[in-house]
Amino acid sequence: MVSSSEPTILLTGGAGFVGQVLCRQLCRSFPASRRVVLTRNILFSEQGWETAIADITDFGAVRSLVADVKPDVVLHLAAQASVANAQGQAEQTWRTNFIGTMSIGSAIAQSVPAALVLFSSSGEVYGSNLRSGPANEEVDPQPLNPYSSSKLAGERVLRDILSPQNKLIIARSFNHSGAGQDRRFVLPSFAAQVVEAEFGLRKPELHVGNLEAKRDFLHVNDVVEAYLGLINAARTLPSLTVVNVCSGRALPISFYLAEMQKMAKVPFQVIVDKDRMRPSEIPSACGDNSLLRSLIAWSPRTSPSTIVHELLTCWRKTYARDCKSTVE
């Protein structure tokens, strides 16, 4: 458990895919707590949360906010989260993922040196060492792209600048998906294309990248459940915990495509698009979740097939709503 049943909670990245799910679950888990989201999105609003508008890379603004809120628990999710986008936006990726993390870490160390901090890192940090099989936390990180390099740097800067009294949980999350994830990511990209074909908005063609790549996917709800479990177990954890959040099983991307073909309402042609191939592609990226299971009572609840069904359902609702609005 955290030190109080009513901790003051500060969340960064609450407007993101995982952050929105986490917002809702934190309300349920800590209904009497003060809950504050730090976001630069002036339109963001979440029931049960106070909104603090600031750029995570603005040291002065973040320091002032943390000093005012004095959180007992900080969950730092704010990031440029797309590996593909990071390739073409390396400077912005480093600015958000590294400078932003240094900013929040510095503010925590100065104003709340006893706070619990959960940093959402990535299984991508293992990089080339993922070629050796499922990675546990003892595997040396060997990042291969601006996203993973900046995430690893974020881990290291927090370890260096937080107070010795701060408890730090570094959650290395592997791939995850579910309703609400945008089409920059592989599974919602597939689902959106399938549904567009169903609605007659595009030719019945699905443009894909490397289908043989194997990836370790969790449903977003399972990721959030793991984060909450770690927060609640904080008293029993050491001052630093580095832990994988993953299913422990890597399936080829072709599996997810085959599931969509089964569930699609129209047949479609699959077209391999060279522009969708990632440089330095790892054939199989899989994590070992043994440590996570030993720390908390957790196991994945949502099957890969259910993830696919949920994505298709979400995009069908989106396009049905859009089409209705157009007609009206």
Rank of each mutant, 00 (worst) to 15 (best):
S45K: 13
A86K: 03
A79N: 04
V73I: 07
A81F: 01
A78H: 07
I53V: 12
V112F: 01
A109H: 03
N85D: 13
R131S: 13
V117G: 00
V117M: 13
W94P: 03
I53P: 07
A86W: 02
A114R: 13
A86I: 04
Y126S: 10
K70R: 15
W49F: 09
S120L: 08
F44R: 01
Q110I: 14
D72R: 12
A79S: 14
S45C: 08
T93F: 00
G105N: 02
V125R: 05
E46L: 03
N97Q: 14
G48Y: 12
G88Q: 08
G100R: 02
W49E: 02
Q110T: 14
E50M: 09
P134T: 07
S106F: 06
D68W: 15
R63V: 04
W49D: 01
L130D: 05
Q92F: 01
A54Q: 06
S64A: 15
S128L: 09
F44G: 02
I56G: 04
I108V: 14
I53E: 07
A90P: 06
P71S: 13
T101K: 07
S132G: 11
Q87K: 00
L116M: 05
N97A: 07
S128A: 15
D58V: 09
L118E: 06
D58H: 13
V73G: 05
T57A: 13
R63K: 11
L116D: 04
D55H: 11
I56E: 05
N41V: 04
V112S: 10
A54T: 14
P71D: 10
V66G: 06
A90D: 03
I99F: 09
F44I: 00
K70S: 14
G60L: 10
S122P: 02
Q87F: 06
V74E: 08
T93Y: 01
E50C: 01
V62Q: 04
A81H: 04
S128P: 03
V62Y: 10
S103E: 06
Y126D: 05
V117N: 07
K70V: 15
S121K: 03
H76R: 04
G100V: 01
G60K: 13
Y126K: 07
A78F: 08
N129L: 08
